[in-house]
C-alpha cells in the first residue's frame, strides 16, 4: 500500500486574469492578499493564492463565495487597463496528493522534472498528466496539488489513484 493519499478537493474559486503582470499584478494581489508570483511559482496560503500560469496569465485562487466580489473589484481596479478576468471555477477540478514519495507518484505521469532542485516548494508548473494538460504545484514538502479541466476530471482522478496505489518507484528519494 502506498503512503500517498489522493483527494478530490471541493471546488474553490478560480479566476483567470490575463494582462501585463506589471499592470495587473497589484490588483490581483489586492483581491488575494498574496504576493505577485514570479515565473513558475505560486504564492499564498492555499485558500487564497496567485499562480503564475504564463507570461501574461495569472490564476487567482480564492474561496468560491468571494469570486463575484473579486471580479467586481478587479473590474474597478483595472478600469482602463487592457486585461481579461474570467471566472473559471466551474471549468476546472482540483486534487491534492499528500504523503511520503509524492514527487515519485506524480513523476510517473509527467515529463516535467520534479526533483527537489527543479521543483521546490512554491513552484508551479503547467505540464502534461499522462494524456491531458494540467497544472501542478508543490504546496508543501510532501504535498502536491493539481488542477485539470473539469471534462477530464474522472480520467485524472483514476490516473492519480492508480499511480499512488502502486507506490513510489524511487526516482527522487530512496525507498
Amino acid at each position: 500500500m502506498s503512503e500517498v493519499t489522493v483527494t478530490r478537493m471541493a471546488p474553490g474559486g478560480m479566476i483567470t486574469l490575463r494582462g501585463d503582470p506589471a499592470e495587473v499584478g497589484a490588483a490581483a494581489a489586492g483581491v488575494t492578499r498574496a504576493e505577485v508570483p514570479g515565473p513558475l511559482t505560486i504564492t499564498g496560503d492555499g485558500v487564497r493564492g496567485l499562480g503564475w500560469m504564463a507570461p501574461d496569465e495569472l490564476l487567482i485562487l480564492l474561496p468560491a463565495d468571494e469570486v463575484a466580489e473579486a471580479l467586481e473589484r478587479l473590474g474597478a481596479d483595472l478600469d482602463g487597463v487592457h486585461h481579461l478576468a474570467v471566472d473559471v471555477s466551474d471549468a476546472r477540478s482540483r486534487f491534492a496528493l499528500e504523503g511520503r514519495g509524492v514527487r515519485d507518484i506524480v513523476q510517473k505521469l509527467t515529463p516535467a522534472d520534479l526533483s527537489e532542485a527543479a521543483f521546490p516548494v512554491g513552484c508551479l508548473r503547467r505540464t502534461r498528466l499522462a494524456q491531458v494538460a494540467g497544472a501542478i504545484w508543490m504546496a508543501e514538502e510532501s504535498r502536491i496539488e493539481a488542477i485539470c479541466f473539469r471534462s477530464v476530471t474522472d480520467y485524472v482522478e483514476t490516473l492519480l489513484r492508480t499511480a499512488a496505489e502502486a507506490g513510489p518507484p524511487g526516482f527522487h528519494a530512496p525507498l
Binding site: L40, A54, P111, A112, T127
Partner: peptide
Amino acid sequence: PACGVMADETEL
C-alpha cells in the same frame, strides 16, 4: 523562451 521551462517534446 517564454516561460523558461525545459519542455519535453510531448508537451509541445
